[in-house]
Simulated assay, not measured.
Amino acid sequence: MRVVLITGAASGLGWQLARACHARGDALLLTDIDSQGLAARVDTLGAERVLGVPGDITDPALHEQLLEACRQRFGRLDVLFNNAGITHRSPTVRTAPAVFRKVMAVDYHAPLELTLAALPLLRESRGQVAAIGSMAGWMPVLGRAGYCAAKSALSQAFEVLRAEIGLDGIGLLLVYPSFLDTPIDRNALGADGQPARHARSTIGNVRSAEWMAEAILVALRQRRERLFPDRGSWLASLLWRLAPALYYRQMSRRFAGELR
């Protein structure tokens, strides 16, 4: 029986990953800052092979608590899903520095630090790490400077990390989704750190979290290194590299509402 740790597991993609992993027989260690939502999810799945540990993923003490709980309850760790995330929708020049720091802490520092702390357990199982990046880490998107920066940092760090931990037999999958129907966008921060008050702009298809979870599990079974599930966004990232002026014109029209 595989043991899976999922961050941000109370809703969205994290919850769909939990459901899919539980259905295939995995034992789950779930965490989320939403303690009530997490408890409800554990109740839904049943506590026989599911443990919930609530907390702030940016807190190193939570990382220690999670890994100790994993050792004590399950004795191993096979897959770490770095799923927890946060975004903002606000013009860079009007965004409070605290918003940028929070996005970077959740989307970059936390997954890297948790992964490093989990390496001893993952070495024992020759396990796998999955990190949820974003196409925003590959190309600029108006109104999301902090999110683009955090996901770019995540991508670069984990691309380097893959080669290093691969020497220990640990696999690393980087997932680059485009727009998903999850609470991360509904809970986006505004310039002042309060919930954003305008609807998000999108390109391409808005995919379901369930669809994304299934694609991720297939990629893990295949021990792939990268997953680009949305062809349209992948092509847009190529346009940014090959014809950046054209990309900027199209993005500026599509995302004009982000400058309010």
Rank of each mutant, 00 (worst) to 15 (best):
L28S: 06
L29N: 01
L29R: 00
L30A: 13
L30Q: 10
L30M: 11
T31H: 05
T31N: 03
T31C: 15
D32N: 06
D32S: 13
I33E: 12
D34H: 09
D34E: 08
S35D: 14
S35C: 11
Q36H: 15
Q36G: 13
Q36S: 14
Q36C: 12
G37D: 12
G37L: 12
L38G: 03
L38Q: 02
A39W: 07
A39M: 10
A39N: 11
A40Q: 14
A40K: 12
R41Q: 15
R41A: 15
V42Y: 10
V42A: 09
V42G: 07
D43G: 12
D43Y: 03
D43H: 11
T44V: 09
T44Y: 12
T44P: 00
T44D: 14
T44Q: 12
L45H: 10
L45G: 03
L45T: 02
G46Q: 04
A47E: 13
A47T: 08
E48S: 10
E48F: 08
R49T: 10
R49H: 13
R49A: 12
L51N: 02
L51V: 13
L51I: 06
L51E: 08
G52C: 04
G52N: 04
G52A: 08
V53W: 01
V53K: 00
V53T: 04
P54Y: 04
G55T: 03
G55M: 03
G55C: 07
G55A: 09
G55D: 10
D56T: 07
I57Q: 01
T58L: 10
T58K: 05
T58S: 12
D59T: 02
D59V: 03
P60A: 11
P60S: 09
A61K: 05
A61W: 05
A61M: 07
A61H: 06
L62G: 01
H63V: 03
H63D: 08
H63R: 06
H63E: 04
